[in-house]
Design a protein around this nucleic acid. Sequence first.
DNA 1: GCCTACGGTTTTTTT
DNA 2: AACCGTAGGC
Length: 821
Amino acid sequence: MPEPQGPMIVGEPSSGARADDDLLRGLNPPQRDAVTYRGQALLIVAGAGSGKTSVLTRRIASLLRNREAWPSQILAITFTNKAAGEMRERVQQLVGDSAQSMWISTFHSACVRILRREAQQFGFTKSFTIYDSGDSRALIKRLVKEHEADAFGLTPASVQGRISKLKNELADAESFARQANMSDPAERLFAEIFADYQRALQKANAFDFDDLIAQTVYLFRAFPHVADVYRRRFRHVLVDEYQDTNHAQYALIHELTRPVVGDAEPYAAGGMMIFEASEAPELEGASLTVVGDSDQSIYAFRGADIRNITEFERDFPGAKVVLLEQNYRSTQNILSAANAVIGHNFDRKDKKLWTDVGDGDPIIGFTGYSQHDEAQFVADEVEALRRKGVDYAQMAVFYRTNSQSRALEEILIRSAVPYKIMGGTKFYDRAEIKDALAYLVAVTNPADELAVRRILNKPRRGIGDVTETTIARYAADEGITFRDALANASALGVGPKIQHAISHLDAVLAEATEIMLPSSGEVAPPAAVTEGLTLLLNKSGYLDALRISKDPQDEARVENLDELVAVTREFARNNPEGTILDFLTEVALVSDADDLDDASGSVSLMTMHTAKGLEYDAVFVTGVEEDLIPHRISAGEPGGPQEERRLFYVALTRARKRLYLSLAMTRAQFGEVSVAMPSRFLQEIPHELIDWRQSPGDVNSRGGSRSRALNARRPGGGFGGSGGGGAGGSGGGRYGDDLVPLPRREKPVGSIEKFANRIPAKVRDNSDLELAPGDRIRHDDFGDGRVDMVTGEGAKRVAHVRFDSAGAKKLLIKIAPISKL
DNA sequence: GCCTACGGTTTTTTT
DNA sequence: AACCGTAGGC
C-alpha cells in the first residue's frame, strides 16, 4: 500500500502509556489532525486514496495507547465485512491482540449482534432468521399474488423496492398507511401488503436486511434502558463510508451517541419516561468520528442520503472537519482524469486530489468492434502486463452491470488468464445451497414457515401445492405452526404415501434438532453444525436425489454441497464456541466479495460498485458506453447521471499506476446486437491524457458493415495457442478500406505498441486540413511521412500515408493527430 | 404431482 | 441468451 506507513509497532504496547509519536510518523498535517483531534464530533473528508484507513486505524490505536479508551469501548462501522476485516487486521498490527475485543463490523453485523441479545424484548427470539433479498422477494411474491395486486400494477419487485425504501426512512406499515392516499386502490393494496409482509416476518421470527437496522433503531427508541446499555459501552463510535449511510443508519448512529440521561428505572412497564431538561446528563454522548467523501457516494439508489455528510456540521454543532486531499495511490494522470470527470458534477464542494508521485503512464484507450473484441484487448493487455512483471492479483477489470462479465469470462478462459469474479453470482445464492440452509433454518427457527415450505418438497416427495395448502390450513385451524403440523401427518387427511413422506421429513428434522439444539439443554459441540447438516442432506434424501439424477449439473450441485459442509467444518475450527446461529448469521451477511485473500494469483473481475474501497496497480474500466455508464435507467432519475459520474470516478480512482478505458462499438443485449456510443464521461477527460490504441473514431469510420472482419478471423472454439499469426502483422495496406488494422489479439508476439494509433475521440477536428499526394506530414506517433493519395469525401476523407519509419498507414484525416509540414 | 414446451420478460448497482 | 411462469399431457 502506498499509504504512508510509519514503522509498524507490533505486539503489546508493553511499556505502559506511550506517546503516539510513532503513530503520526509519515502522516501529513491534516492526517495528524485527524488522528489526534479529541472532541465530540469529527468529520474526516477523505478523498479517494488519501490514506483514510491509515488515519482511522491510527486514531483508534492512539485512543488505546493513550489509555483514553478500552478496546471494548470502541465501535467501528464499515460497509463491508471485508473492510471490517482489513481494519481489524491493521489495528491489530498497531496495538496487538486487544483489537479482538473491539466491535469492528458492518452496520448489519453490529445490529444482528445487538438484536440477538435483545430480541426477546420485543416479540422475537434469539434464533431469528435473516431474510436476504431473495427470501423477502419470495414472501412478497406470495403476498402480491394473494392480494391479486398485479392487476393494479404492483409487481413483486416494485413492492419490494418500495418497502425497502420506506424502511430505510424508518417508516413502518402503520405510518405509511396513515399518510398514504387510501382512496387510490393501488396505494391501499400496497399498504395492506406492506402490513402483511411485516406481520409475516414477525410470525416467522425473521428480519429482512433493512429490518436489521430499522428494528434496532426502534428497539433503542422504545426501550431507552436497553439503548443506554450500549451508550454506556461504546464511548467512541467511528463510521467509515459515511456518505453511503441511509437515514436509518444515520438514526442508529444518533441513538448510539446520545447522552445517557439518567438511570431511568428499567422495564418501566408502560410508564412514560420523563426526562427533565434541566437535569444534567449522567454521561455525555460518545465521541463520533465519521469518514467519507461525497464524491464517492454511489448508493443513493438504496437510500443513501448524501446530506448525512454534507450536513454533518449542522447535525453535530461544533464538529471539527478535516480535509484530506493528498492522494497516495494514483499517478497524476489518473488523478487529472478523475478530477476532470468529477468536476462536471455541479453542486459539489470543489476538492482536487493531487499527488507528488508524478504523471506516470498515459491512460490507455481502446474501442473494440464487439464486447468480445474488447474483452480480447483486456486479456492481451493483462498478459502483456504479466510479462512486464505485474502480478495477476494486482490487476482488476471493472464493469457497470454484472451481465457484462460473461463476455470477459469467455475470453479470459480462452486466453488462460486466471481470474476471479468478486461478488458475482454468489455461492450462497445457489439453489442447492439455499435449500441446505433452509433445512438448517427449519431446525433452528421452526417458526420460519418460508424455510419449511421451501424444503417441503425438496427432494421430490410427491408433496405438491394441494398438500402444502392442506398443511397450512390444518396449522391455522389448530393454531400451531406449519412446522408442528408436520408432526401430525395422520391428521391431515392425505394419502398414506404422502403421509409417510411428511412423517419422514418431520423425523429427520427432529433428529437434526436433537444434534444441533440438544433438548437436554447442554451446549452442542462445535462439530454439531457439520453433523446436523450432513444428517439433513443424507436422511432427507436430498443428496441421493442429486446423485441419481441424470442432469449433468447435479453433479456440480453435489460438489457445492460438499463445499458447504466443508465451510461448516472450517467455521467450527475458527469459532470453537460458534453455534448454529452464529453460522447462519455469518452466511447471511458475508458475501463472496468479502473473501479477498484467495483472489491471489488471479485477476479480479467486479462491478464498479464492488470496487469501492479497493485499489490495484492496473485497472481496466470496460464498457465505457452511453446507456451503460451512465446507465440508461439512471438517466431519467433525478440525480441519476450525477451518481453515475461519481461511480465512474470511483472506478478511475482505484488505479495506482495504469488505467485502461475500453468500450465496444456493438454490444449484444437481450440477445440482440445494438450499436453503442462512447460514454459522455469519456469526453470529459482531457484528450491528451488518453492514448488511444484504437479510438471510437477508428472504429466508426470504417462504415457500418465491415466491423465483423476482426471476429471473422477468430473462429469460435478453435484457434490453437499458436498465436500471433494471421494477417495482422505488418501494418497498413492490405485491408481494403479498413483503416489501420487491429493487431492480432490472440497471442500478441511482438510489441503491441508498434500498432499504436492515437486518435483522440471526438476531440480533434482536422476537417479543414487539405492534403494532396506528395505532401509531407507529421503524425504524433508515427513520425514524418509522405501522402500517397487521398480518398473519400468530407468527414470521411482518408489519407494514405507512407511513413518514413512506421510504414504505410491509412488515416482518417478528420481525427488523426497529424499536421502538415 | 411431475415434466416439458412455450412464451414472455429481462439487466443497475448491494448489505 | 437465460430465466421464470404457465399450460397441457402424462
